[in-house]
Amino acid sequence: MRLLGRWLLLSLAALLVLQLFFIGRIAAMALLDPQSTSFQRSEAWRLASSGQLRWRQDWRDYDQIADHLKRAVIAAEDDGFVTHEGVDWEAIDKAWERNTQAEQVAAERAAQNRPARPLRILGGSTITQQLAKNLLLSGERTLLRKGQELVLAYALEHLLSKRRILEIYLNSVEWGEGVFGAEAAARHYFKKSAAELNAWESARLAVMLPRPRYFEKLPRSRYLNHRTNTIVRYMRQVELP
């Protein structure tokens, strides 16, 4: 029992140290731009291992990124960004319901020996949660990792401003194979700076975010075009931090 108690104490101490490390990293980001994220480092390793390392990323301050892109990303990814505290529980509930319905449909089609449609899992994650995951965590899908993501999302919201969270997100998010951040994406797809993006170009980039490498290979996707037009109409109503 003593040995078990010591292991528990050591585990709790290690967990506390890890949380303090994460919080220290986040607090530093109030003043310092992050050089890379956990996700970027794992992608760099993957690309280097395959012998095709291609990397584009150029940091741009908040005011050097078009407001069109900010509005489009919020409209497409997290329309409650300016009001929530890091986690949108209503969006998570809706995603859970839609995933459950999709799984039921897939099971019914399988029982009828009908071809299964691709099952897209919706997460309901906010921009803050996505940033927490990409900055500091691995890409594994476990309850423990999801719990840590929620803790870090609340830490981000309390230690950084909404404006700073959006700035870091737009500079670090993936927009294609080895393409990270708004400036690299604007140059890669439209041969212009992130400050020069118009509403349609911004909406198109925003729609790519859930599956950037997939849409990079399908520039004429009907879904991509339809969703882009929808976001262009909706983004006019978006409030910026």
Rank of each mutant, 00 (worst) to 15 (best):
T228D: 00
G86D: 09
A66C: 13
R120N: 08
I127Y: 01
M235L: 11
A102V: 05
F39K: 15
G176V: 10
N225Q: 11
S221W: 07
N99H: 05
L159F: 03
A66N: 11
G181H: 10
D78M: 06
R114Y: 09
T126P: 03
L136P: 10
P212E: 05
K94E: 14
A48Q: 07
L9Y: 07
E201G: 02
S36N: 13
A107L: 08
R164C: 08
M208C: 01
K217S: 13
P241W: 01
A155S: 11
W200I: 12
I23M: 12
H226W: 13
K192H: 06
L159W: 00
L136F: 15
L218D: 06
F215K: 01
A206T: 07
Q104M: 09
I127R: 00
K192W: 04
A116W: 04
R164V: 10
V232R: 06
V73T: 04
L32T: 13
H158R: 15
A195H: 00
N113W: 00
W55G: 02
E167S: 09
A76L: 05
L159A: 07
E149F: 12
Q40G: 08
L4H: 05
L240D: 00
R141L: 04
M29Y: 11
R71V: 00
A155P: 02
E103W: 02
G178N: 12
G139L: 13
P115I: 02
W59G: 07
L20G: 13
D67Y: 11
E216A: 15
T100A: 11
G181R: 02
L150E: 06
W45P: 00
A199L: 15
A206W: 01
E108Q: 13
Y234K: 07
P210Y: 02
R56V: 10
N134R: 09
F215N: 00
L224M: 03
